[in-house]
């Protein structure tokens, strides 16, 4: 009876984990459709990649309850944890450079100051070089 009870409790746990993981995917889908620009869509898209995957892997672990499975699930999740920030960084950088975003929606743009400073520096350098006699 106790075994049966714990089995049904574990089933409920698995069900809750699966459904909340699926809701993460749904949140990402709705966010992708509703959000106005690339950067805010990126924010929505990371939910199933990290938290959603974690919930599904936890559901697998609870369902199978085998120690041999845990390292594989850990490798899967840690790898996703390492790669998804890198790819998000690359996509965000490409979006910033090619201006696939809405500047009016930004609250703060710290990169803008840096870019402006670098541009001014470059202008100054060029002017200095122009003042000297042109070697070529």
């Amino acid at each position: 009876m106790i075994v049966e009870n714990s089995q049904s409790v574990l089933d409920v746990v698995v069900a809750v984990l699966l459904i909340s993981g699926a809701l993460m995917s749904l949140a990402a889908g709705v966010g992708l459709v509703r959000f106005p620009d690339l950067l805010s869509r990126m924010h929505a898209a990371t939910k199933p990649q990290v938290l959603g995957l974690l919930l599904f892997l936890l559901a697998l672990a609870v369902e199978f309850r085998s120690w041999a499975l845990i390292p594989v699930l850990l490798v899967c999740w840690i790898f996703q944890l390492l790669t998804s920030p890198v790819s998000a960084h690359m996509v965000g950088r490409a979006g910033y450079r090619t201006r696939h975003m809405r500047r009016d929606l930004l609250t703060i743009d710290e990169l803008d100051d840096v870019v402006e400073k670098a541009a001014r520096q470059r202008k100054d350098d060029r002017r200095k070089k122009g003042a000297q006699p042109d070697p070529g």
Partner: peptide, 26 residues
């Protein structure tokens, strides 16, 4: 509208496929 939006959306599709496979395994 841009290729970056598309690649982001397809990343999400891949995550959803992974989720579906995990569900199937369970």
């Amino acid at each position: 509208p841009s290729i970056l939006d598309r690649v982001l959306a397809l990343d999400v599709v891949l995550a959803i496929i992974g989720a579906a496979l995990a569900t199937r395994m369970v």
